[in-house]
C-alpha cells in the first residue's frame, strides 16, 4: 500500500448566487496515493476544475473533509495553508498564468523568491529546471516571445520550483497542438517515473488521460467511474 497523500470524504462544493445554488462537486470520496498519476475526465461543467481546486486547497469545501498530506485543510489557518501549498503543491493551469513582464527564468524563480530563497540560489535552481524542460536557450525570453508549448513548459518548471511532491494540472495541453501537447505529457510522465511525483491531471482528451495510470470520470459533480489503467511503467 502506498502512502496516502490526498483523502476526500463526502466532499461538497456549492456556489451560491442569490437563492440558487450550483453543486459543482456533489459528495465525492476518494484517496490518492503517493506516486500516482491520476487523470480526471468528464464533460464541461462536470466539476473537474472545482475538484482540483478543492484538492489543492485553492478553494474550500462547503461540506466534507479534504486531507492533503495528512492535514485537514478546513482546520488550517490561511498562513499555514499558503505555506503548505507553497512547499508541497505545484499547480499548472490551462492558460499558463505566467507574469508577462518577467523573463522565463524570473517566472520560474519567483515562487522561490517568495519563499525567501536567496536570489542566486533561486536563479540557479530555476536554470536547472529550465534545463529539465528543455528551455535553457529561452531563459531570458519574456512569455510573449515564447510559443504556447514553451510557455507551458515554463509553467511546469515554475510548478516544480519548490520540489513539490504533488502536481496538479488543469488541462495542461488544452491550448497546444498535439506534438507540443505530447511533449508536455511526456515531461509529466517523466516527473512521475524519475522523481516519484504525484500527479493529478484534468483533461478532456482521452489520449492525454492515457498517460495516467488511473482514470476518474466525473459527471454532474460526482465520480461516475474510477478505473485503474496502469500496469508496469517501463
Amino acid at each position: 500500500m502506498t502512502e496516502e497523500i490526498i483523502r476526500l470524504e463526502r466532499v461538497v462544493k456549492e456556489f451560491r448566487r442569490g437563492d440558487t445554488a450550483v453543486r459543482a462537486v456533489d459528495g465525492v470520496s476518494l484517496t490518492i496515493g503517493r506516486g500516482e498519476f491520476v487523470s480526471i475526465m468528464g464533460k464541461s461543467g462536470s466539476g473537474k476544475s472545482t475538484l482540483l481546486h478543492l484538492m489543492s486547497g485553492l478553494q474550500q469545501a462547503t461540506q466534507g473533509s479534504v486531507r492533503l498530506l495528512g492535514r485537514e485543510l478546513s482546520q488550517l489557518k490561511d498562513d499555514d495553508l499558503t505555506l503548505l501549498r507553497r512547499t508541497h503543491v505545484g499547480f499548472i493551469f490551462q492558460f499558463f498564468n505566467l507574469l508577462p513582464t518577467l523573463t522565463a527564468l524570473e517566472n520560474v524563480a519567483l515562487p522561490l523568491l517568495l519563499a525567501k530563497v536567496r536570489t542566486s540560489v533561486a536563479e540557479a535552481k530555476a536554470l536547472e529546471l529550465l534545463k529539465t524542460v528543455g528551455l535553457t536557450s529561452r531563459a531570458a525570453h519574456k512569455p510573449d516571445e515564447l510559443s504556447g508549448g514553451q510557455m507551458q513548459r515554463v509553467a511546469i518548471a515554475r510548478a516544480l520550483a519548490g520540489d513539490p511532491p504533488l502536481l496538479f494540472a488543469d488541462e495542461p495541453t488544452g491550448n497546444l497542438d498535439s506534438a507540443s501537447g505530447e511533449e508536455i505529457l511526456l515531461l509529466l510522465k517523466q516527473m512521475q517515473i524519475d522523481r516519484g511525483q504525484t500527479i493529478v491531471m484534468v483533461t478532456h482528451d482521452a489520449k492525454a488521460a492515457a498517460y495516467g495510470d488511473r482514470l476518474i470520470t466525473m459527471r454532474d459533480g460526482r465520480v461516475l467511474d474510477d478505473q485503474l489503467t496502469g500496469g508496469m511503467v517501463g
Binding site: K189, A206, G212, L215, T229, G230, G231, V233, G234
Partner: peptide
Amino acid sequence: RRVYHLQMAELTRQKIG
C-alpha cells in the same frame, strides 16, 4: 468505454517506452 481506455493506456505505455 472502459476497455478502450485501458487499451489506450497500454498503447501509451508502449509509446513512452
